[in-house]
Design a protein around this nucleic acid. Structure first.
Lengths: 253, 253
DNA sequence: CTACACCTTTACGTTACGTCAATGTCAATA
DNA sequence: TATTGACATTGACGTAACGTAAAGGTGTAG
């Protein structure tokens, strides 16, 4: 049997435009073109279309489908396995997305108060996620996979009290730092107190403290604009001031 | 604090282009434009961006986000609930997709033979799905929701033997029909045998048989091109011939 | 002979940006 | 001071898989 676009489209449950598109990208060419310029498809094309639609329903992209059914030495099993991995990752992401939406709904409706442990866990998780999103690649490059994972672990294992202390330290650091900034002296008493607070804050997530690493982090606050922005958001120049104070504190030039 | 595109982008972990795009679609305008034409964002814009990114992470489209944070009488809870429904539907689809891919992989690797009940169930399911994809809307309109569901139920509850008989009947119908078509006489013995086979085949999924309905289906084979294509795929004109034979058989018209 | 249903190609619209290209601005340095 | 390098701007094309006109040719039934 021979089919025009409409006929074949109806048979397969797709649109004529889809068939023209498939012709255009070369994934399914008609058997021949008749005198009037009509696309004429035969049974071979019907079979090929069936295959295409099968893979398409699996969510495979047309480009990959093209490879799958064109290249004879392409292994469809391997391709399908790769595709499965993608789908699984997608589902995982979708799951956390759904969980987030549900949490947000519950929060908005006041069904859960989240003033207790949950909220705390959620905060920690969110902070880690945010940190990962913003700095993930860089800090992994700078400090290595292990260090980063370790500090995340420490973070996750903090008790509520420890976490509150961590937050409190951060706030105190900011307050002290701003006051010190007003004096303009990175070597002054207030600035050195800020540097010490900064050390305390850092050791919360660090396994071991070293002056060199401390000075390195302070320098990074100036080098990396995103960190700079975080401190300078409170007061322009704060990041540099903190670095200078820390350099004095650690005695590293 | 004030930010240029780069600064704000770094702070939020997005690209400058994204900020320009958000300006373009009016979802986040800068606080002001300086003399050089630079976009300058303030803390109010930072907050708004946080909100935008929050909803974006939930997978909400920018257009809906715009409504969410612009329209004051827009209920975010309702919007989130709708969005959750969409996500759940998406996950459901993704799940069946994954199941399908896995089944295909297993089949390709020969890990499962599917020569038993499973294969049979799979076939039935696939037929129903295909039928649904192709004709779902129309047959529901023509015969009503109940009838369609009922016939699917009958189909699903068929035993292997019944199903094989169903398939055998279909094949015999085709063979007989083609032979009858060669005679050219819709009222002839062979054609009437085909019509009777068609009746038997239909009653497999019909609760009750009526001549009128039988004639109606035969007419539909001619009216609906997708059915026509199914029969004409074997031999052009077969659909019409079957209709004529059935009309004689049922004594209608 | 005229509808009318089919076919054709061309081309813009969709989403949320990525990626040049051409050009202007600003701060630091030789 | 002139230049350099890192920023900024707008404009425009590309993405995936088609949907949707628009403008025009074809085929057949009445």
């Amino acid at each position: 049997m021979e089919y025009t676009v409409q006929k074949l489209a109806s048979l397969a449950g797709i649109s004529p435009r889809t068939l023209r598109y498939y012709d255009e990208i070369g994934i399914l060419k008609p058997a021949r073109i008749n005198s009037a310029g009509y696309r004429i498809y035969g049974s071979k094309e019907v079979d090929r279309l069936q295959q295409i639609l099968f893979y398409r329903e699996l969510g495979v992209s047309l480009e990959r489908i093209k490879e799958l059914i064109t290249d004879p030495q392409f292994d469809p099993v391997i391709a399908l396995k790769e595709h499965r991995e993608k789908l699984l990752a997608k589902r995982k992401q979708l799951d956390s997305l759904i969980a987030n939406v549900e949490k947000t709904i519950a929060l908005s409706e006041g069904r859960i108060t989240m003033s207790d442990k949950e909220k705390f866990e959620g905060f920690k998780q969110k902070m880690i996620e945010e940190n990962e999103r913003k700095y993930g690649k860089e800090i992994r490059e700078k400090y290595g996979e292990e260090q980063v994972e370790k500090s995340y672990q420490i973070f996750k294992n903090m008790t509520k009290e420890q976490y509150e202390e961590y937050e409190r330290l951060n706030k105190e650091l900011m307050v002290t730092l701003k006051k010190a900034f007003a004096t303009g002296d990175p070597a002054g008493e207030l600035a050195q107190k800020a540097a010490d607070l900064h050390r305390q804050w850092l050791t919360f997530t660090w396994g071991n403290y070293s002056k060199e690493a401390h000075a390195g982090v302070a320098q990074m606050y100036v080098d990396d604009e995103r960190f700079t922005a975080y401190y300078d958001k409170e007061q322009p120049g704060l990041a540099k001031f903190l670095r200078d104070a820390v350099l004095v504190y650690t005695g590293e030039k």
